[in-house]
Simulated assay, not measured.
Amino acid sequence: MGECVVRLDDVPAGDRFEVWWESVAKAVVSVEAFSAHAEDFWAEMRSVDLGPVHLTRVSCVGFEAHRSASRIRRSDPEAYQLSVTVGGRSGLEQGHGQAVLAPTDLVLYDTSRPFKAWSAADGDGLSEGLIVQFPHDVLRLSETIVKPLLGRRMSGRHGVGAILGGLLQQSLSNAGHLLAADRGRLSTIVVDLLTALLAHELEKDPDTLLPDSGQVLVLRVQDFVERHLDDLSLSPADIAAAHHVSLRHLQRLFLQEGLTISGWVRDRRLERCRRALADPLTDSVPINVIAARWGFISDAHFNRLFRRTFGLPPASYRRHMRDGRVR
């Protein structure tokens, strides 16, 4: 997918406010907006598709926006959005979370829940920000883990937040030089970095963010599994022992999140197979070799699992990725 740019320079001043928020509804999400500058409104938006991740940079004068329950019922992409403040000041309220954001700060919110957002211009009269949007299931974290972090300010000055913010800006700046396969890889990296950032926030202050420390343990176990997926001998018992808990206790925690340990490990290995099949650099590697690399020995079993998970058999998925017909 290519880039999309929306500018208001050629739109009559009296129509700009309405045209802008119609464009926002199409590219980001539908909201009800207000601005002291509605009569002389100016804004600019540039969007890039990275596959399941949609990245948008916005420059505009100050505004306030509300997403109500009635708007959610009319239109809901069922997605998370990550906002990164680049210039000026901004804020977001969702549930019990209230974030006031300075440049580099990040906040995660959910389009399926009401929220209020605002932006105030910097000295040059404009505010700037990045918005990352992706479907709920792309994050692969349960709602109970993510919900306490919605609407909470996360710093982008140091650590994982700084790495993620820098990657987003570089991805947008270099979008014109990216191949389809590059975009897919970047999409995966963005989601992985966001998951690492959420894990960092949970471990930093688990008592105030998550009353149930078991949810923190689940997230730590998931991170451990991601780092040891290439160990095909890794068993649920090994995972439990590595975290000094009983297997029964760990299984119970995963069940509370609607998961099983073995099923989650299998799904993550399937995802590694999908990434390999989407990568042109692996075109010379037979599908059964890729499957066996991640523990799927039976071709028939692998084909069934892959099709059930991703909607196409492995060979069709690889072929359609080269044709650009699969997002």
Rank of each mutant, 00 (worst) to 15 (best):
G184H: 11
L179W: 11
L178P: 03
A196E: 10
L219E: 02
L179V: 03
V190H: 08
S171I: 08
L167G: 03
L167P: 09
L209Q: 10
L178M: 13
K204C: 14
L168A: 06
D212W: 04
G161Y: 03
A175N: 05
H177K: 15
S187L: 00
D212I: 04
L179Y: 11
A199F: 08
D207L: 12
G165P: 07
L186P: 04
N174Y: 14
Q169D: 11
T195Y: 08
I189P: 06
L186T: 03
V218N: 01
P206M: 01
S171F: 02
A196Y: 01
L219H: 07
T195A: 15
G184R: 13
Q170L: 14
L202N: 00
H177I: 05
L219P: 05
L172N: 03
D207T: 12
D212G: 06
A181I: 02
A175Q: 09
R183D: 09
R185G: 06
Q169F: 03
N174L: 14
L193I: 02
S173V: 09
L186S: 00
H200C: 08
G165L: 10
L219T: 10
V190L: 03
L193W: 04
A181M: 00
S173Y: 12
E201G: 03
Q215L: 15
L210C: 15
T188R: 14
A181C: 12
V160Q: 09
H177A: 14
E203Y: 00
L202E: 00
V190Q: 02
L164S: 05
S213A: 13
S173F: 12
G165Q: 07
R183V: 06
Q215K: 14
S187E: 09
G176V: 03
L168G: 06
L202A: 04
E201Q: 12
L202Q: 00
A199N: 13
Q170D: 15
D205P: 07
R183L: 07
E203L: 13
D182I: 05
L219D: 02
G184S: 11
Q169I: 06
E203H: 12
L217S: 04
G165S: 12
D212P: 08
P206D: 01
P211I: 11
A199Y: 01
L198F: 03
D205E: 14
L168Y: 06
L168H: 05
E201V: 07
N174G: 13
P206N: 01
I163M: 12
K204T: 13
L193F: 09
H177T: 12
L164K: 01
S171Q: 10
I189F: 10
L193M: 09
L202R: 00
S171A: 14
A196M: 10
P206Q: 02
